[in-house]
């Protein structure tokens, strides 16, 4: 006999289901007055530092149909590469930037949309800088365990080329699934990040 390791097991995941919005965005499903506003709708305010950007996209199933019942969360560093989190030990992040956002995908179009700032660079575990990125987390009916991925920026080609995480992806074509294309909307840069759950363009998802 040896001594016993007494670690607990992580609680297993279950799907968020079709009614996830009742718990996360009750005002969006007309359950109003329980709390003031749904969390995560606004990331930036008038005093937030950094370049304003829009981030938008859709999540496609294996037949190319956008999910109109999903929930998307983003988590990112501020313009200087610091996170608004007690676990951030490198400095104090911009107090006017939440860094976390959450949106249901649109009931008809399946689109999600965040107004945020372009994040600064954050070091990898060995200290090399990663390219600017936004962590994306997706739950929905039919997804048994939440999906983690990352949005990178098409206009950061040099940083992307040396990003230690992007370079972990064996096939260059698959790296491209994480790069949001840049456009413009109402004077703001808009980055479109379409997520493909299956198929030739299946997005790279992470086991973080």
């Amino acid at each position: 006999m040896v001594q016993r390791l007494d670690y607990l097991k992580e609680s297993p995941s279950q799907t968020a289901g079709p009614y996830v919005h009742i718990g996360t965005n009750p005002n969006w499903v007309e359950i109003t007055g329980v709390w003031n506003g749904d969390l995560g709708l606004v990331l930036v305010g008038p005093d937030t530092k950094g370049e304003r950007i829009l981030v938008t996209g859709r999540i496609f199933d294996g037949l190319g149909k956008p999910l109109n019942d999903a929930l998307v969360e983003i988590w990112q560093a501020d313009a200087d590469g610091l996170h608004n989190s007690p676990e951030e030990k490198r400095g104090r992040a911009d107090p006017h930037f939440a860094g976390w956002g959450r949106q249901p995908t649109h009931r008809e179009t399946g689109e999600f949309r965040f107004e945020t700032v372009k994040p600064g660079r954050v070091p990898y575990v060995d200290g090399r800088p990663m390219a600017p990125h936004i962590t994306v987390y997706i739950v929905a009916r039919g997804i048994n365990i939440g999906l983690h991925t990352r949005l990178y920026f098409a206009d950061e080609a040099a940083a992307n080329a040396e990003c230690p995480v992007l370079n972990r992806i064996e096939h260059p074509a698959r790296r491209e699934t994480l790069v949001a294309r840049r456009g413009e909307e109402g004077g703001l840069p808009v980055y479109t990040f379409d997520v493909h759950l299956q198929g030739h363009h299946e997005t790279v998802f992470f086991d973080v």
Partner: peptide, 26 residues
């Protein structure tokens, strides 16, 4: 669980050492 059939990624997940991006949180 039929809805999972069209919504399940089929490729292997990319295993990633925790970076500051995942070790922080709101």
């Amino acid at each position: 669980y039929k809805t999972s059939v069209l919504r399940a990624p089929r490729q292997a997940l990319l295993s990633l050492d925790n970076t500051i991006s995942e070790m922080t949180g709101p």
